[in-house]
Every structure is written in C-alpha cells, then in structure tokens.
C-alpha cells in the first residue's frame, strides 16, 4: 500500500473535519434543508404584517413589522441550533452510533462536541442570513448595519448549540427534549423581547427575562438592525460569550461519559 502515515493534525483542522461531516450531511438534501429557512420568516412576516401588524402602529417607538423582524433575525438560529445539538446529537450518539465510528479516527471526544457546537453556529449564521434576505427583499428594514446581524445569528447558534449539548448530556430518553422545547425555548420566544419589549413585563419577572439567553441575542440583533447601538449592548455581547463558553464547557465535560465508556 502506498502513502505514509500522517502526524496528528492541529486542533483547528480536527474541528474543521468534524464540521465538514455535518456540512456534507446537511448539503446532501439541498432543497429540503435549504428552502425552509427562507419560507418560515416569509410566512411569519407576511402573516403578522398583513394581520396583526395592522392593529399595532408601533412598538417601543418602531413600526411593529420592523420591531418584529429585528427579533426574528435570531429566533430561527436559536431553534435550529437547539434542535441540532439535542435531537441531532442524541440520535448520532444513541441511535446511529455515528460518534462510535468517528472516535476511531484521530480526534478526541471534545473535538467532536466542539465541532458540533461550531456547526450549530454555522447553521445559526445561515438561518439568520435567510431571514435577512427575506427582510431586505421585502424592504422591511434598510440595508446598513443590518448586514451584520447574521453574525449575531451565528453567536446565537453557538450559544444554543452549547446549551443543547449540556441538555443532551443529561437526557436518556429522546422524548425528554420535549420539556426543553415546550418548557423553555417556546416560552422564551415570547418573553425575551422578540414580540414585545421585556420592559413591558411585570417588574417581578423582569430579572427573569434578563437572565434568559435569547433576550440578549434579540437585543443585540435589534440594536444593529434598527441602527440603535449603544455602549450597554456590550453587556449583551459579553453575556453571550460567557454563557456559550461556560455552558459549553460544562456540557462537553458532562457528555464525555456518554462518549467514552
């Protein structure tokens, strides 16, 4: 047999290889995977814009459709990343045994999970970009700092990918993810400033809303989309970083016992 052994490749290349696996799987069905990210915001914005939007003149000083659109830029990222790193990760771990095969190659279990989170970030970027394209195509928001919002989508993807791994590390039955989605993500969609300002919540629950990860992603994306960036948004950025690294680190350590006997 020809060719010689290669040495161990560096961390970045190992992560890229894990990412490459997910990209290959995702792009295998381009139409069924690539189209819905565009259709969802389209349906949502048309539905709300033609329906509810007519009854609400402004929200927090902005036309309602603009207000809503600036929040929707990151919610799709949240859902796709959370889905990828809960159901997706669980299926690869427990049902398809994909990881058992991959761990025979020269990568570690941490490489595998970090690569998973990076892939969730990429999907976050793509889903956010799809929403942005729809928004710009309908002229809902002007071109400008709006163009940066997919990066917030990517951060959102990384954050919820990390959270997904942490949740998955505890789950033994795939149905238990329903608690995470119905009990945490769906309510969060309504109480983190996407459809109405967090400031409108009763004073008692406001700190709770501030603790939610989506609140900060929405605030950041809205500040960029509505051209209202202030110094205080640095805190939202920091929250996202600390949450992603902290929860991600915990999740990756905690899921190791499921990957390594």
């Amino acid at each position: 047999m020809s060719s010689s052994n290669t040495g161990v490749q560096g961390l970045a290349l190992r992560l890229e290889a894990v990412w490459y696996r997910h990209m290959r799987v995702y792009t295998r069905h381009l139409v069924s995977n690539g189209l819905p990210p565009f259709l969802e915001p389209l349906i949502f914005l048309v539905g709300i814009g033609l329906g509810l939007g007519r009854y609400i003149d402004s929200m927090d000083g902005f036309p309602y459709l603009e207000y809503l659109a600036s929040g929707l830029l990151v919610t799709a990222s949240m859902f796709t990343a959370a889905f990828e790193c809960t159901f997706g990760t669980f299926i690869r771990l427990e049902f398809e045994k994909t990881y058992d095969g991959m761990l025979g190659a020269a990568i570690t279990s941490s490489d595998l999970m970090v690569g998973e989170v990076i892939w969730a970030g990429s999907k976050g970027l793509f889903f956010s970009l799809a929403v942005l394209i729809v928004i710009l195509a309908f002229g809902i928001l002007p071109v400008g700092l709006t163009l940066v919002t997919p990066l917030v989508g990517m951060l959102t993807g990384l954050m919820f990918g990390a959270l997904g791994i942490a949740v998955t590390s505890f789950v033994n039955n795939i149905n238990h993810f329903n608690f995470f989605f119905s009990g945490f993500l769906s309510p969060m969609f309504f109480f983190s400033g996407v459809v109405f300002p967090v400031e409108n919540l009763p004073r008692v629950v406001r700190p709770l809303a501030e603790a939610l990860p989506l609140t900060h992603a929405v605030r950041l994306s809205r500040a960029l989309a509505l051209n209202a960036v202030e110094a205080r948004h640095l805190w939202d950025f920091l929250y996202i970083l600390v949450f992603t690294v902290g929860v991600g680190w915990f999740g990756i350590v905690n899921i190791r016992k499921r990957l390594i006997d």
Partner: peptide
C-alpha cells in the same frame, strides 16, 4: 457494529473519515 455514517454514501463516508485523520 461497524458504526458507519448512515447519512452519507460510501465515498463520503470515507472522505469524512479520511479528513478526520488529516487526509
């Protein structure tokens, strides 16, 4: 149990695995 990647075809299974090994 082989643990092949059921979501990829034969060629891509090997391409992904080669890449994981730095090839």
């Amino acid at each position: 149990d082989n643990a092949l990647d059921e979501e990829l075809d034969v060629m891509r299974n090997l391409l992904v695995y080669a890449r994981l090994n730095g090839i």
